[in-house]
């Protein structure tokens, strides 16, 4: 899972023959590969976006990991563990995709741990009940898919190819999450209440995953021109709402938005005012669980340092023995 939502400032491209050729290839839907010429700003934008995506996968393991040891059946326990493992796998190959742009995983991890790099702020919300595991799969992964499907056609080859696999797995997660919600909403009164409470808490943060409204977003143009991004925040948000509201109604749940209504002419679901002040607070690091999330990552990193050192030392010894032999 992952969300975009953080529009990156990018420089306007200067005119040069390389730049013109580069843009022509993008316009022709050619893929840009690691050894190809690319503008510095394109490289920087991609490093930021791909690494944020990777960080989000890694931090995203924590809220769901919170329920692995308490999953209510062995089948659910195995499915959740496999899902969280998938997120780790996404992180791994996204870091690898970012490395093709000339950074190391270590540098990127340092940026996450030092607080310099961002990750999707959705993971700074807490998972308080088992239904949150369903809601995350259904809504958070559902929103992520809306963002990510277009990235399968991103102009940068390694990212686009990674996203094809990520999207396949995410859509499986999304169905799995919805199936948890369906089971709960057809279950006992306590389970139904759990499902409704989870929807109430996750709905608005999920709408925020698509980022600020287009009217307030100044940075999309270059990303659009470079075909890193293909749809606007509001466009993707609308697509998500239109797909999700009928699913929620099928569950017999209500959305925590009294203004939610379907436009009879366009068929689109219109939503109430999003609390952008909350979004800004969470993006700026003031998320409910933000301190805990980073602390958990730092702790794992610090406590694992001796293990990584041992692995390096052993590899060096082995190499030396081989050379001596």
């Amino acid at each position: 899972m992952y969300s975009q939502g953080l529009n990156q400032p990018t420089e306007a491209s200067a005119d040069s023959p390389e730049q013109a050729r580069f843009q022509a290839r993008i316009d022709a839907e050619d893929k840009i590969e690691p050894n190809d010429w690319m503008p510095d700003a394109y490289r920087r934008t991609l490093i930021r976006q791909i690494s944020q995506h990777a960080h989000s996968e890694i931090v995203g393991m924590l809220p769901e990991g919170n329920w692995i040891t308490r999953a209510p059946s062995l089948r659910r326990k195995a499915a959740l563990l496999a899902k969280v493992q998938d997120e780790g796998g996404h992180g791994l190959y996204l870091y690898a995709a970012a490395e093709t742009l000339g950074v190391t995983r270590e540098e990127l991890v340092d940026q996450l741990l030092s607080g310099k790099a961002k990750y999707s702020s959705i993971f700074n919300y807490p998972t308080l009940s088992w239904a949150d595991i369903g809601a995350i799969g259904w809504l958070v992964d559902g929103a992520a898919i809306m963002n990510q499907i277009p990235l399968c056609r991103c102009s940068y080859g390694p990212y686009a190819r990674a996203m094809i696999r990520v999207c396949k797995e995410e859509s499986f997660h999304q169905r799995q999450g919805y199936e948890i919600m369906l089971t709960l909403s057809r279950g006992t009164e306590a389970q139904k209440a759990m499902a409704q409470d989870a929807l109430n808490r996750w709905w608005w943060p999920c709408l925020m995953m698509f980022g600020p409204p287009d009217s307030a977003s100044q940075h999309s143009d270059t990303s659009m021109q470079w075909k890193i991004k293909r749809f606007t925040n509001d466009g993707l948000r609308q697509k998500f709402i239109d797909a999700t509201v009928p699913q929620g109604h099928f569950l017999g749940l209500t959305f925590p938005d009294p203004a939610l209504r379907q436009d009879p002419e366009t068929g689109h679901w219109q939503h109430g005012e999003i609390d952008w002040a909350e979004f800004k607070t969470v993006v700026a690091g003031g998320g409910f669980q933000a301190t805990d999330r980073l602390e958990a990552r730092r702790k794992a990193h610090d406590e694992g340092a001796w293990v990584r050192e041992a692995a390096l030392a052993y590899a060096a010894k082995r190499q030396a023995r081989k050379t001596a032999a």
């Binding site: 924590l62 692995i68 496999a82 780790g88 794992a300 293990v307």
Partner: peptide, 22 residues
């Protein structure tokens, strides 16, 4: 082993320990 998930010394080990747990 599942208690390690998300807290292992390296990402590769997060995946490996989860795999064994599964």
């Amino acid at each position: 082993l599942s208690e390690w998930c998300g807290h292992a010394p390296a990402l590769e080990e997060d995946l490996a320990l989860a795999n064994i747990a599964l």
